[in-house]
Amino acid sequence: MKKGSDNTMKDIALELGLSSSTVSRALQDHPHISQETKIKVNEAANRLGYSYNAVAASLRNSKSNTIGLIIPRISRYYQSTVITAIQNKLHEHKYNLMICQSNESHELEKELVNALYASRVEGLIVSSTLNTTDFAHFDVFSRSNRPLVFFDRVPKNYPAHKIQGDDYHGANMATNHLLTQGCRNVAFIGGPLFCNLYRERYEGYADALKGYELSPGPNRTFFHDLTKESALQSCEALFSGKRDTWPDAVFCCNDTVALAVTTYAKNRGVEIPAQLKITGYSNDPLTEIIKPTITSVEQYPSEVGTQAAGMIMNLIQQKLKPGKNYISVTIAVDLVKRDSTDK
């Protein structure tokens, strides 16, 4: 028999005395095929130079065994940890993950949705961009009954399955911690309020202040992309006046900002935590390396990823049949107290 791409599953089946369907299932690592048969089939495939074409198979049976994922930035600790958890969970089901990065661009997000749909992914997991307020481009999945699950940054009114952290409670808990430490001039640096994360975190912050009959002072709240550069601009505004007008605490809506505020304050000679207390959000490992270490809210991203992947697989396998209702899961958060708030 001639080696090469011309050899098919029929050739393998003929050599081993098996049916083509058994060979196909063995090459796909089907659980109903014995390990002994899988080994024989794969050895024969290697010997004959045959490579299983998953794309061609998906065109034949309308199954790609692939899930699409769109996230804003792969480089962030939270997102990268979620990706790992999703991939590990999907691997248990013999599914692959196709990862796309929107770079916080609404237009690119729309292009990626259409590209993943055309690639025949069986479902889509999404954390939307900061600028996504119109979610109509996701309709292509709901119209075709392909499962769609949002996590972290989720739509407020768009009908969809959602996995999100308890952002209100996380912010409220962090701000209350600052207040119980004696702080009364607490600044807030967050993202735009049309994004569910930062709207809920701001509400948690504001309600904590109300509990002490306080309200955000002038020039104490900032809403922008949570990058190092934007955080430093907010710091310039916070620490521009006389020293007695400076905040005694800053609640930061991510750890990138918390790290930037910490570095800025140290460079200005501000003592942390004696003169300024800082809390972050996400519990990035870097918060344990910097001096002083930074108090932060633990979001449990591995649990978020596992829940998102588990939900989409249950929807694909029809173990979940929500009908006209959509499933919403809230992941609990915890405050990890460190040197930046504790004397």
Rank of each mutant, 00 (worst) to 15 (best):
Y52G: 07
Y52L: 08
Y52V: 04
N53Y: 01
A54G: 13
A54I: 07
A54K: 12
V55F: 11
V55D: 10
A56V: 05
A56H: 13
L59E: 08
L59F: 06
R60F: 11
R60D: 12
R60T: 10
N61H: 10
N61I: 03
N61S: 11
N61L: 04
N61V: 00
S62D: 07
S62L: 04
S62G: 08
K63I: 01
T66L: 12
I67V: 10
G68P: 07
L69D: 09
I70W: 07
I71Y: 09
P72D: 11
R73D: 12
R73E: 11
I74C: 12
S75Q: 15
S75N: 15
S75Y: 14
R76W: 14
R76K: 13
R76N: 14
R76V: 09
R76H: 14
R76Q: 15
Y77W: 10
Y77Q: 07
Y78E: 06
Q79T: 14
Q79W: 12
S80H: 14
T81K: 15
V82K: 00
V82Q: 03
V82L: 01
V82E: 00
I83Q: 02
T84A: 08
T84D: 10
I86V: 03
I86T: 01
I86C: 02
I86R: 01
Q87H: 12
N88A: 08
N88T: 02
N88H: 09
K89G: 07
L90V: 01
L90C: 04
H91G: 06
H91W: 02
H91E: 08
E92H: 10
E92S: 10
E92I: 05
H93W: 02
H93R: 07
K94H: 15
N96W: 00
N96S: 01
N96F: 00
N96E: 00
N96T: 00
M98A: 11
M98P: 03
I99G: 06
I99K: 02
C100N: 06
S102T: 01
S102V: 00
S102I: 00
S102C: 03
N103Y: 02
S105R: 03
S105A: 01
S105F: 02
S105N: 07
H106P: 13
